Structure formats: C-alpha cells, structure tokens
Simulated assay, not measured.
Amino acid sequence: MIEGTIIKGIGGFYYVRVENKIYECRARGRFRKEKITPLVGDHVHISVDNASKQGVIEGIMDRKTELIRPPVANVDQAVIVFAIQQPDPKLSLLDRFLILAENEDLDVVICLNKIDLEAKEELQRLRMIYEQIGYQVIATSTKVKMGVEDLKECLKNQTTVFAGPSGVGKSSLLNSIQPNLALQTGEISQKIERGKHTTRHVELLPLEFGGWVLDTPGFSSLQVDFIDKEELQYLFKEFNEYLDRCKFQPCNHINEPDCAVKRALEHGHIHISRYESYRQLLEEIEQARRY
C-alpha cells in the first residue's frame, strides 16, 4: 500500500499525489456503502495496478479538520477573500464562513481585495469591525500589487483553503502570488454584479515557496443548520467574555432580560452587523430543527 494525498476529485475519479507522481484512482465500493466520501486534502492509502498505473483508494486516514462547503479536509487555515467593491461585500456571508471556520478551529485570515478602487472608508470600516474581534485582515490589489507579498507570507508552509464569493479575485490573487498556477479568471457581470464561476472544482495546489492552497469554486450561500443552537454563541469570538455574565443560563441573547451580550452591543463592544448575523443564523438553525 502507498500513502498519498488527494489533490483533486472529478466525476468519481480521485487524483492522488505520491511524492512527485500523480495516480488516477477510484474509491472502493465499501466507502459508498458506509456513506464515506473521499475529500480533497485526505491522506489516503492506495493500491496501484502496475500495468495500467491506475489506483484504488483502500483507506482514508483520520482527518485533522473537515469543511462541508467547500468540501475539503486537513487544512490549517482559511483565507476568506471579499472585494471592497465589484461585488460589494456581504458581511452576513463573510460571518457565515467565519462561523464554519471557527467550528473547525481553523485559523482565519480575512483578505479584502480590489483596494485600488475608491473605497477607503469601506476598507477602514471593515478593518475596524474584524480586527477588533481579533481576526487578521490583509488588504490587497493585484492591479497595483498591494498586499500580495503579505498574503504570500501568510500562505507559506501552510495548507490553506482559499474561499470567497465569485468575482472577488481569488484566482487572480493566486496567479499574482505564483504565476505558473495559471488559474482561469473571470469578469464581473455588470448587470447582476456577480462573478463568473471560473473555478469548477476543488483542487490542492502546491506552492513553490512551501505549503499548499485549495482554490475553490465561489459560493453564494453557506448552510449552518448542522451547528447546535447552544454552540453558535461560542463561535462568535467577541461574545465569549460576556457569556457567563448573563442572568439566565443558558441565554439566547435575544429576548432575555439582563443579558450581558446585549449590554455589550448597546455599549458598542459588539458590532451591530455581527449581532444581526448571530440573530439570523440562530433563527435559521431553529427553523431547521422544526422540520
């Protein structure tokens, strides 16, 4: 048996990298029976037919981390890319991905791209919201080559999932960091202000300076209904110092009196956009539990 890493999966075929070789593999039928789906990033055991040079995935090693969307395993950190403009950033979507990353205990870097556009006030506003919470924020532009070296340093010797809505410039950023990746890029639709899906599948890409990056298809929604209602509050990092100060335990931080989280919101210690994201996600989780 040979050990390798799944770097790509397309149409039921999995491409497993073993040192400098890549083997096209199928998964054993028992994985389907056991309802186990191999993921890009999985460390696997494969057997190889010497004549055809094709392989079979025989076993999947324990996963360090696992994300549902994008479906990847064993990543160290998430770089979440949003544009300052074109398309305008949707903070509720950014917060959803942050929650999924927190749920997997991933380190997170927020990348605000296209800062060459005239949006200095928006950049300052977003920095204020997320740096206050404790997230690292990197501002970038591929057009004027700003922040690209900072982002490159962040990726070094890490396995990173690179994610964000379509059209925010994820592939362009990766091409700027390492041109020989030659990732396809797309333009923004002026009519709907949404990018074309130029990345069609999840793929693990090696970086020349050390590390791996997963370029993923853009997404427009993220489901969080698998998260326990009681756990959601702990995934908003800025809530943590107030949770044990609420009068009622447990507290949903919605209608309960003498709620420390709501007091922090009133005093400006928790940003209103983050609290509204919490309310929206809590409602979605509660609705999902009813059906």
Score class of each variant (00 low, 15 high):
D258Q: 15
W212V: 02
T216H: 01
P70Y: 10
Q287H: 11
N252R: 13
R289A: 11
G167Y: 02
T185P: 06
D88I: 14
T160Q: 02
G164Y: 01
N175I: 15
L155P: 04
Q249Y: 14
L106V: 12
F82H: 03
T199P: 06
A288P: 01
L67C: 07
D244Y: 00
Q86S: 14
L126K: 02
E284R: 12
I7S: 10
Y242E: 14
A51W: 10
R69I: 12
Y130E: 09
I99Q: 08
F162L: 05
H271A: 08
R289Q: 15
L93V: 07
V108W: 02
E208G: 11
S189K: 12
C111I: 05
L91H: 00
P87Q: 13
K21N: 14
P217M: 04
H45M: 06
F31G: 00
G268L: 08
I188L: 13
E19F: 09
Q223F: 02
I254T: 07
D116G: 00
R127T: 14
G211N: 06
M146P: 07
D215Y: 01
E118S: 11
I22H: 00
L112H: 03
R28Q: 06
N103L: 06
I6Y: 02
S172P: 04
D116Y: 09
G9A: 15
F209N: 08
E238N: 08
M1Q: 08
L232Y: 07
S176T: 12
V224L: 15
K120Q: 14
E34S: 14
Q233L: 05
L112S: 04
E66N: 05
Q190E: 13
V224R: 05
G218C: 03
V56E: 13
V202R: 05
I60C: 02
G164P: 04
T216W: 01
T37Y: 08
Q280E: 08
H271L: 01
I227K: 00
V148T: 12
D62Y: 09
Y242A: 14
L282K: 10
E153Q: 13
S52C: 08
N252I: 12
L112Y: 03
Y23Q: 03
C246D: 07
R30C: 03
H45N: 12
I84Y: 10
T140E: 09
Q233P: 12
E276D: 13
Q158L: 00
E104Q: 15
V72G: 05
P179A: 07
R26H: 10
I138D: 07
V137N: 10
